[in-house]
Design a protein around this nucleic acid. Sequence first.
DNA 1: TAGCATGCTACTATATCAATAGCAAGAAAG
DNA 2: CTTTCTTGCTATTGATATAGTAGCATGCTA
Lengths: 115, 115
Amino acid sequence: MTNKIPLPGTPVRGSASGSPIMALFDLLGRRWAMGVLWQLAENRAPCTFRELQSLCEMISPGVLNARLKELRSADLIEKTDGGYTVTKLGQEVYNALLPLSAVSKQWAHALKENH
Amino acid sequence: MTNKIPLPGTPVRGSASGSPIMALFDLLGRRWAMGVLWQLAENRAPCTFRELQSLCEMISPGVLNARLKELRSADLIEKTDGGYTVTKLGQEVYNALLPLSAVSKQWAHALKENH
DNA sequence: TAGCATGCTACTATATCAATAGCAAGAAAG
DNA sequence: CTTTCTTGCTATTGATATAGTAGCATGCTA
């Protein structure tokens, strides 16, 4: 019911004053938030709700809808005629997530080494 | 009680096969996960449990402990004599989060514009 | 011995999430 | 017009996760 969307400048987890990075962590640190943004950006074409739902394996519609609302409020994605797409700002965030992808592979490799 | 730690190669949210990026999203996309790693890395010195607790404003000890366990299992942080620190791998992840910090400021600015 | 800090664990209330069902609106076909 | 899809959700129920607080065991320190 209460769906508080973290925005910079308002109290968020980790920062009563709402520092930008903590607000972003609060927004993206929710289940599926980064996954949804990632899939949408990777797709490079507008997605319908159900397309997005199948791109994210096993996401429930309720959660998907919640994340979509939040990400739209944060102006990272938008809904157009064709479906959902990332905004310019969302694309920037996606770009900022790219290094994580590189590190994740490194991480996977390191964990495999250390058995 | 049931605390399933997402690791690459095992089924995770967004990827039944456990793709590295989805596993990392699953790990970091939990409440406080990025915040804890961030504060620990920024501090650039070992932190005690309570220091970390105060660095993260308002985190409850239960959640902090859960995140610490997960991040340790994932080999992103470790516990030494002096306290908790980021591992080499954790530092890499922190570095990969830096672009997010830059974007978050841009994001905060853009949202302020659009009132 | 009596504090005091540390690193937690325990507990209850609330919030969030998963899983599934299903509905309203629009398009397309017959 | 009516049946049949697809789409974009909402509703519901039960399971987990988190918040907020209390407090305990351990190892100093005084």
